[in-house]
Design a protein around this nucleic acid. Structure first.
Lengths: 215, 215
DNA sequence: CGTACTTTTGAATCGCATCAAATCTGGTGG
DNA sequence: CCACCAGATTTGATGCGATTCAAAAGTACG
């Protein structure tokens, strides 16, 4: 039994699924949906372990699940973190898992039998198209995220986020600023300060959770 | 006509396609492959422009192509950067492009007619599966990359890279260290210094382009 | 054998992380 | 309704590590 770093555990329940997750659930054919099981995990509990046989496709409904591998020095390496949406879908093709999946907060998920999932993909052209579309959207979002994290300053990342996720230089944040900071690869302090600087010099107007760039 | 930031232009030709790109090309059915056109771009040249009709799926063989949007203040926002592999594949579903595609180095690509591409996906189950598998791999790679860029120190990113991209705590780098630094979201100086520190304290052994973690 | 680029090292600076602590806010139970 | 609590939001002080600017040495290739 491996002890996981408790720094990554959220002490409190994480808000319910985002709307996007609901869309995902709707994309699933009824007959496949009927075969899904509910899974509930406590913080720190494992969904699967490295070497385990791939039996299911998992959809995270709420909470947070991380894919983790233990490195040489015993340090843990997070490969993916899901707070809604599919997790480890790339493992569907493998026989066995190449990492551990650990809930870092109390989480609810849906488990679809892997065989049924693959069969549905093969036999249901609409689902197949939908699945490709889901993957393609995910790829686009992740690429933008990588570009953003490659930027050096807090302000550049904020601008990039608003310009790429928002419309016309404005976004309605769907999360707390603290969570946003994590998404941007910043500490919350750095984010607050950068926002203040931008508000002060007039390049950003912020009302509640709506952020709009100026000029 | 929009002038693009020349800082992002590579003055020199970028090495030929990685082996992964070759695999991609092989995944494409012969009849689709036969319909592909070669495209060559000079540095700074546009592959397509925002608002343009989506006519093709593009595979970058060599060089570098960036998807770029111009923000409010005239600053450019890079959404994706491809140095091999498909680019803008998420746009296949759209009618028109929502960003510009600019070569930042002399580049060669293949253009597949979008209709033929989609038809092949629909009619060729093997290609459809292969395409899903390509997307899933891409998703996995990008998620690992995002996790890596979220790490705060150069050393952590190096460890993460080696542990997640390599085998048994060792990788054979397929690029120059300078290019690696960009992948890691670091300046090349920061990478060289971090590598030296790690070599000095014995946590990394490096022979040529092979990097191995110790302990 | 010269040119272009990578690799390496140095010095100075700046921005972000870190540690601390005070307020604010929404939700809970008495 | 109010007291209370857990997080979120802010602000401050400090230090470290990465960026930046510079320049030298190494290397591949025509």
């Amino acid at each position: 039994m491996i002890a996981y770093d408790l720094n990554h555990m959220e002490s409190q329940a994480i808000p319910p699924a985002k709307s996007a997750t609901k869309d995902l659930a709707n994309a699933i054919p009824a007959d496949l949906r009927a075969q899904a099981c509910d899974v509930e995990l406590e913080a720190g509990e494992a969904l699967f372990r490295i070497g385990g046989k791939v039996r299911n496709a998992y959809l995270v409904l709420s909470g947070e699940v991380r894919l983790v591998r233990i490195g040489l020095g015993g340090a843990e390496i997070t490969l993916q973190r899901s707070r809604g949406g599919f997790i480890a879908e790339a493992s569907l093709e493998s026989k066995a898992y190449h990492c551990d999946a650990i809930a870092s907060a109390p989480s609810k998920l849906l488990a679809f039998p892997a065989e049924a999932f693959k069969a549905a993909l093969a036999s249901d052209p609409a689902f197949c198209r939908e699945w490709q579309s889901i993957l393609a959207r995910e790829v686009r979002k992740l690429r933008a995220q990588c570009e953003r994290l490659g930027l050096r300053s807090a302000e550049e990342r904020i601008r990039h986020y608003i310009e790429s996720e928002g419309v016309d230089g404005a976004v309605e944040l769907a999360m707390t600023k603290k969570a946003w900071a994590t998404d941007l690869g910043l500490t919350h302090e750095a984010l607050y300060r950068a926002l203040k600087r931008m508000a002060d010099d007039g390049s950003l107007r912020s009302v509640g959770s709506r952020m709009a760039l100026s000029r």
